[in-house]
Design a protein around this nucleic acid. Structure first.
Lengths: 137, 137
DNA sequence: GCTTGACTTAGAGTGCGCTCTAACATTTAA
DNA sequence: TTAAATGTTAGAGCGCACTCTAAGTCAAGC
């Protein structure tokens, strides 16, 4: 019943490279993974879920340092310390919201510029192939 | 009338460091800036506007390489080639929209986790200081 | 038994975007 | 006149997050 996954399978499932998975373990984002008799890593379903959550933190731009703090809290106080963990996530949430806001604000200016180019492009094409009507008007 | 700005003033106005301003010029994101008789940079209002737009591209995550392509187009064909420029910005726009979407998707999971911690925290506190009512119920 | 391929490690290397340094010139205020 | 501040350059250095390498172990198929 206990589905154990190889590092390749976890890489395929998460989109992280095998290099990155080992790197994350080395810098203690992931606790020491179980091993087969031959010493190869065998990831549990729980390991996979943890890695998937880690990846969501990364994809929203949380620095490795901060993820390490979070992972350390989970490791050292698995049944308490919820407040500190929540605090880290809540602070990060605010940072991500601010980032989204900034992206949207800057996108407005870029959109405006795209629109501007559309118009310039249209005028430029008109000047190359003027229709008789346009010219006489 | 022609307001010329020092590198410090442009740094203050844009939020970029003087180091970064010189770096951008070196890698041709910014065309060679005018100089005072003593050789110090003097930025025009146009320079400032260009740098501000560049900064919006950077803040939305456009790589320096792509900004270089865009800057090169503006420099080589200031009065045409609007299509290629628009294309770069439009592609970038799509990338930014996708990034915002991904941030929002991942944020849903993080939000869920924060909520989960709120509940665990509440239960943990209840178990420490149980009210008579709660205990008898 | 032997090859092939997936796995292991410690540690080196990479790409990006700055960021800083050293050595020197110029400007400004006291 | 002189000290402090600001500017210049080429080039080195840095922090981040991977990404790869070398040298070796192990398991499966022929």
């Amino acid at each position: 019943m206990e589905q154990e996954l190889t590092i390749q399978q976890v890489a395929a499932a998460t989109g992280l490279s095998v290099h990155t998975l080992r790197y994350y373990e080395r810098c203690r984002l992931i606790a020491a993974i179980g091993r087969s008799t031959s010493g190869h890593r065998r990831y549990s379903a729980d390991d996979l879920r943890w890695i998937e959550f880690l990846n969501k933190l990364r994809l929203t731009g949380m620095p490795i340092r901060q993820m390490q703090q979070y992972a350390e809290l989970v490791r050292s106080q698995p049944n308490s310390g919820f407040h500190s963990r929540r605090q880290i996530l809540a602070d990060h949430r605010e940072a991500v919201l601010a980032q989204i806001q900034q992206l949207q604000d800057n996108l407005v200016v870029i959109d405006w510029k795209i629109q501007h180019y559309c118009e310039l492009e249209a005028n430029f094409n008109d000047s190359l192939k003027p229709s008789p009507q346009t010219q006489s008007a």
